[in-house]
Structures are given as structure tokens and as C-alpha cells.
Amino acid sequence: MAIIEVVKYDGPPGVFAWKYPNPELGTWTQLIVNESQEAILFKGGQALDSFTAGRHTLSTANIPLLSNLVNLPFGGKSPFTAEIWYVNKLNSMNVKWGTSAPLQLQDPKYKMMIAVRAFGQFGVRIEEPRKFLLKLVGTLPQFDQSTMLSYFRGLLMSNINELISTYLVHKKISILEINAYVSEISKHIQGRLASTFLESGIELNNFYIDSISIPDDDPATVRLKEALAKKAEMDIIGFTYQQERSFNTMEEAAGNPGSIGAGMVNTGLGLGMGLGFAGPASEMMNRMTRGIMEGGASAAGSTAKTCPSCGAGNSAEARFCSGCGRSLQQPQPEGTPADRTACRNCGEQVVPGAKFCQHCGTSVIISCAGCGHVLQPGQKFCPECGTRAG
């Protein structure tokens, strides 16, 4: 294999470490290192020397240890085999990370297990190239952003899960409100991970959480959002969950007039469920109560009484309207016993206006003993002089 004359690497910024593929070198080989790069020469798994930006000749004069390892005469020219690694020392600010599967966290406010996804990015710089190569790279031909993520994914996910959960409990906030605190959580995670990265020769410059999201199709999330939407609706209208349940109960009773619930409302117990309601809630209660009473009256058929004044339904035994207070007693038609008088002879009822009893023929015309005024049937005192009849 031909001896390499010049070694150089111009790779993409997302590659942190790259090994030159040809190990056939010579003491005259030129090593070119760009700005923001550092090259390290390895022989037999041992790091011999490092080279900063510039042009370097791989001679024994520049690498004293090389003569001991390959038995080269000092200042002599000879081929040898070794590995050259290039390390990118630029700040890499866009290393993206994300949860491959949702994290299961308990919402401290609503006591529900919620699935959470998190996404973001972090920035790193290779601070100690030799330590980085020895501890992370090993025999890999290349080390890029995806490789770094695979190495640190477990560390990232465990810390993110723990810190988000701790933060939620400490602040007593819901997962639905967590996005308002991502900046503060990001700083906590960076502080926790910085020392671990530095152990591998990597400086963690920043750490960002771009978004903490909740999958829309998660059943627990759907139930929680529906409950919060219902609560917001009731807050706007102006009543509580217990009052909402009372409304539902009364609506069911209105739909079934013969039920026990309808009877409870008619007797006043149902009205007690709605005490304390104000505004729209009170009006709703009144409408439902009236509907139940009217529904009960319709179901009762001919046994119910309808008020001729307000139209409210009343029970058959009611003497006054429960809606407006008007008397429900019907005037007695002509010919009822209240308008008749009894025959003095046989005791039978005589039709009003008759002069003789239709049963025995006895005259029913009575004259006042005091003034002679003819008394009408049923009169017990004379309207002229006040004398008692009979």
C-alpha cells in the first residue's frame, strides 16, 4: 500500500471525531490540521501526541515517542503504521433530542397518570479530545451527533423524567401548565447533566426543552380535557357540579311525570334541591319545576285541574292554584241542592220556582207571619221585617 504523503480532513460540523482510514504513514507525511480541529496520533492503542491547527511533519523530531515504538533512527526516514484521529472542537449547538416513547407522569393537581412527550436540543463542545476519544469513541471509525445521542439517551431520559416530575410536585402545577416553566426546567437539567458530560471530555454549553406535549389520543388526556372544559362552562354559566347534577335529575323527572322524582318536586322536596341558586340557575330551576308539574298534570288526565288564569297544572284535590293562588272551586250550576228547598210535608227537594211540591202537592209558598211578604224557597228570615220564617 502506498505511503500517504498528506493527511487532511474537511468534514461536516456534525462529526465530532473521525479516523483517517489509511494507517500507512511515513516520517515525511504531512499532517494538516484546520482551525477548530485537533489531531491525535495513536500507535498500538496509545496516544502518542496531539497536534493543533497548522501543518506538521510526522518525524521523530516532532514525535520523540515514535522512535521508541517503531525503532526508527533519530532523524531517519522510514514508513510506519499508526492511526490519526481528527477531533472537531467547534461548538455544536443543535444536537436534537426527543423522547422515543411517551413518559408516564402523574399529574399532582388532578392525580391522573398522563403520557408526556418532550423535545429539545442541546449544545456541546469537545473540551478534552484525548479523554473524549479514550472514553467514548474507542474503535469506532466516526463519532457524530447521532452516536452521541445513542450514548447519552438513557441519561437524558432518566433525568428529564425525574426532574419534570419533581418540578410538578414542588410547584403543585398540572402537566397541562408545564410549558410555562420549560426555561427553568431546562436550566435544572443542564446543571444536572453538565458534570456527567465533562467526565467524557465534553462541555455541555446549553440545554433547551423546546416543547413538552401531551398526545391528543391518550385516553387520560381526553378525559381530563373534557372535565376541564365542562368545569369552565359551568364557571361561565355560574353553577357548580352538584347543581348540574341536580338539574339533570330534575330534567329526568320532567321527562317521566309519573316517577318518584316528579312527585318529590310537586311536594316541595325537589325545590329544596335548588335552594341557593341565583340568576340563570334559578330561572332554569323554575322552568324545570313548572315543566314537571305541567307534565304531571297532563299524565293525570281528567283528574287534574288547570288554572283558567295562569294555565298551571294542579292536582284534582287542589282548591287554589299553586301558580297564582286563584280559587279552583267551580260555581254550582242551577238545580243543585244548594239552590233547592225541602217540602214541609214530605221532605223532598223542590225545584226552584215551583209553587207546589212535585212529590206530594203541598204548597211551598210561605208568607211572612209578621208582614205577609212572600218568602222565597230557602229563606229563613223575612227580608222585609226580619221575622223568622215558619
Score class of each variant (00 low, 15 high):
residue 7 V to S: 03
residue 9 Y to L: 09
residue 13 P to N: 10
residue 17 A to L: 08
residue 18 W to F: 03
residue 22 N to W: 00
residue 25 L to V: 09
residue 32 I to H: 06
residue 32 I to T: 05
residue 42 F to A: 04
residue 44 G to V: 07
residue 45 G to H: 07
residue 46 Q to V: 10
residue 47 A to L: 07
residue 53 A to G: 03
residue 55 R to P: 01
residue 56 H to V: 02
residue 59 S to H: 04
residue 68 N to D: 09
residue 74 F to Y: 05
residue 74 F to A: 01
residue 81 T to A: 06
residue 83 E to D: 12
residue 85 W to G: 11
residue 86 Y to V: 02
residue 86 Y to A: 01
residue 89 K to D: 00
residue 93 M to N: 03
residue 93 M to E: 02
residue 100 S to I: 09
residue 112 M to C: 04
residue 113 M to N: 12
residue 113 M to I: 09
residue 114 I to M: 15
residue 117 R to N: 14
residue 119 F to W: 03
residue 122 F to D: 01
residue 123 G to P: 13
residue 125 R to Q: 14
residue 131 K to G: 03
residue 133 L to P: 03
residue 134 L to P: 01
residue 140 L to N: 15
residue 141 P to S: 14
residue 152 F to Q: 05
residue 153 R to S: 04
residue 153 R to P: 00
residue 156 L to W: 04
residue 158 S to N: 15
residue 161 N to C: 00
residue 161 N to I: 00
residue 165 S to Q: 09
residue 166 T to E: 09
residue 167 Y to W: 07
residue 169 V to E: 12
residue 177 E to D: 15
residue 179 N to G: 05
residue 179 N to L: 03
residue 181 Y to L: 06
residue 183 S to H: 06
residue 187 K to W: 03
residue 193 L to E: 02
residue 193 L to A: 00
residue 193 L to F: 00
residue 195 S to V: 05
residue 200 S to F: 14
residue 202 I to Q: 11
residue 202 I to F: 12
residue 204 L to Q: 14
residue 205 N to P: 00
residue 206 N to C: 02
residue 217 D to W: 11
residue 218 D to R: 05
residue 221 T to K: 08
residue 232 A to Q: 14
residue 240 T to H: 09
residue 245 R to V: 07
residue 246 S to H: 10
residue 250 M to T: 04
residue 251 E to Q: 08
residue 254 A to W: 01
residue 257 P to S: 12
residue 258 G to Y: 01
residue 261 G to L: 15
residue 264 M to I: 02
residue 265 V to T: 15
residue 268 G to E: 11
residue 278 A to F: 02
residue 282 S to H: 03
residue 283 E to Y: 08
residue 283 E to C: 01
residue 292 I to R: 06
residue 292 I to S: 04
residue 293 M to C: 05
residue 294 E to Q: 14
residue 298 S to P: 00
residue 299 A to L: 11
residue 301 G to Y: 03
residue 304 A to L: 08
residue 306 T to F: 10
residue 312 A to C: 00
residue 313 G to L: 08
residue 318 A to F: 03
residue 323 G to L: 09
residue 327 S to T: 15
residue 328 L to H: 07
residue 330 Q to N: 12
residue 333 P to N: 14
residue 334 E to Q: 11
residue 337 P to E: 14
residue 338 A to Q: 11
residue 339 D to E: 15
residue 341 T to W: 10
residue 341 T to G: 13
residue 341 T to P: 02
residue 343 C to P: 05
residue 343 C to D: 08
residue 343 C to A: 07
residue 345 N to D: 15
residue 345 N to I: 06
residue 345 N to L: 10
residue 346 C to V: 04
residue 351 V to Q: 14
residue 353 G to R: 15
residue 355 K to P: 05
residue 356 F to D: 10
residue 358 Q to D: 09
residue 363 S to L: 05
residue 368 C to Q: 13
residue 368 C to D: 13
residue 371 C to N: 14
residue 374 V to K: 14
residue 383 P to E: 06
residue 384 E to Q: 13
residue 386 G to K: 08
residue 390 G to M: 11
